[in-house]
């Protein structure tokens, strides 16, 4: 009996995140489906429930999966990242057309962020900009493979790490 009580208490505590996940999934389903007949709607409710159940069973519903976490700053960061991607692509395209200039290197950069989400966002952003690929992430350090000096310098300047810190909210100085 007490086991059940404990379990229900746990579910109640994570209710907020489950609710926000449900709303996001339902909105996604409604937007993508485009067919609003009773049977199809019922299937939609069923699939949302299934995904939420699977997510709770996998224990991945938590504060870091709250979609509203970075809502305000995320679009700004994505805009900046898209511009960085364009610049990095031009550089890598130049190197591909001129392979003699390729100087591959492996180096480490510090990860100055506290939360795991920010670290993952940093590693993903590094990989997403061509010219740098994150190879390994340990506590506080990221091993990076870079295609040439310019890509490496760009990352070492720490501009991206600062933006992620700003995104995370721990550093409000930078725009």
């Amino acid at each position: 009996m007490s086991k059940w009580k404990e379990r229900i208490g746990k579910i109640l505590r994570s209710m907020r995140y489950i609710l926000s996940l449900t709303i996001v999934l339902a909105a996604l389903w409604l937007a993508v489906s485009g067919v609003y007949k009773p049977l199809i709607m019922l299937l939609g409710v069923g699939s949302v429930a299934l995904v939420v159940w699977l997510a709770t069973r996998m224990k991945v519903v938590g504060v870091e999966h709250n979609p509203a976490l970075y809502a305000g700053r995320l679009p700004l960061y994505w805009g900046w990242l898209a511009w960085q991607i364009v610049l990095a692509n031009l550089n890598v395209a130049r190197l591909i057309l001129n392979p003699a200039q390729v100087r591959p290197r492996v180096f480490k950069v510090k990860v100055p962020h506290d939360t795991a989400v920010a670290g993952a966002a940093y590693a993903n952003s590094v990989t997403l900009t061509p010219g740098t690929v994150s190879l390994q992430m340990t506590a506080g350090e990221l091993t990076v493979h870079a295609l040439d000096r310019r890509s490496a310098e760009e990352l070492k300047s720490g501009a991206m790490a600062r933006r992620i810190a700003w995104l995370e909210g721990s550093d409000t100085e930078h725009p």
Binding site: N89, V92, P99, P104, T127, T129, L147
Partner: peptide, 19 residues
């Protein structure tokens, strides 16, 4: 096709998969 080793080819794949 052109780049010399596996890790450099990852960057080429990056061009084809992002921009």
């Amino acid at each position: 096709v052109r780049l010399p080793d596996f890790f450099t080819r990852l960057h080429a794949a990056g061009v084809a998969e992002t921009l």
